[in-house]
Design a protein around this nucleic acid. Structure first.
Lengths: 159, 159
DNA sequence: GCAAAACGTTACTTTTTTGTCAAGATTGAC
DNA sequence: GTCAATCTTGACAAAAAAGTAACGTTTTGC
């Protein structure tokens, strides 16, 4: 269970934009340099993020990228879903071995665990927004654990 | 964020062994057939699982594989850690772009989220054992949610 | 002993994922 | 209007993951 390169770098590019003063934008070369990736690679990532509606781009001299919505309104769960190509929906169609369909098509003891796991992850990520990620490592860490704590308490009250 | 083929199929092979009557074992061709994968592939997976100490193998005619420990004592968190090649420990060494080390080496707002996410997943998986996975899909689903519910309640009480 | 059935190990091939390149399109400045 | 800076897009190349093949070792049964 891991984060793909696309998820990691895509998220980082968005954080760079979220960390900008109101109204400012970044060009591809600037984003690439700040994240230590090639301009070509940054270009592809930003294309994905633009297509998904997370950023707005302007062409020509003085062009660049900026967030399409306030950072506080963009949840990590949305971002990951896009960068991950909605992998979860296809899980059971992918792992079919040498056959056309999974041998556990009818009844599968693993499926509920996989689905449940993704629910837990999506749930945790839906409570974190881009604006939560712009601070220092220690402050983000504190925020994350606070959010998780609150969330779990609400969960168990509901149950 | 997704499960790799190695994790998925490796876990499934273990579930097959967990579903066996006490003392019985399965050969590679049997495991392969039951999971719809090639014998060669099953062989590689079982080699990994044997090396990690989850199963015992016996060679020669009448040989085969069986669990090294009771299914109720093997937690999914251990299994995933092995099949995933302990990916988490290397996260920050992997995503360095074109550079030798990650540009966020010093202070990184994303790291606590990645680490926290893996903690949440490992936490959820540590409460599920192989024996939980042998029933029907609906019973496993019920068990999973029950375990998660109990766990979250304890978590929030502690907090 | 020897052949058949089974696991063990390493090297190789294929497929998927990542990352790069190059040509095109759009805009602003002069 | 031309030029330079910038994003867009599809094709291509490199790297990683997944899967296969080949050959070896061990055990059982005859």
């Amino acid at each position: 269970m891991k984060i793909s390169a696309q998820e990691e770098y895509g998220l980082r590019c968005l954080v760079q934009l979220a960390d900008l003063p109101e109204g400012e934008s970044l060009t591809l070369p600037q984003i690439a340099e700040r994240e230590g990736i090639s301009t070509a690679n940054a270009g592809k990532l930003m294309w994905l993020l633009n297509r998904a509606g997370f950023v707005h781009s302007t062409r020509g001299t003085k062009g660049g990228y900026l967030l399409a919505r306030p950072a506080s309104e963009i949840r990590l769960s949305e971002i990951i879903r896009v960068l991950d190509d909605d992998e979860m929906a296809k899980h059971c169609d992918n792992y079919t071995g040498v056959l056309d369909s999974c041998v556990h098509k009818g009844d599968c003891g693993i499926r509920p665990v996989i689905i449940g796991l993704h629910e837990i992850v999506a749930d945790a990520l839906s409570n974190i927004t881009l604006s939560h990620l712009v601070g220092s490592e220690s402050s983000v860490d504190a925020t994350f654990h606070k959010i998780q704590g609150i969330h779990r308490t609400l969960e168990s009250q509901r149950a």
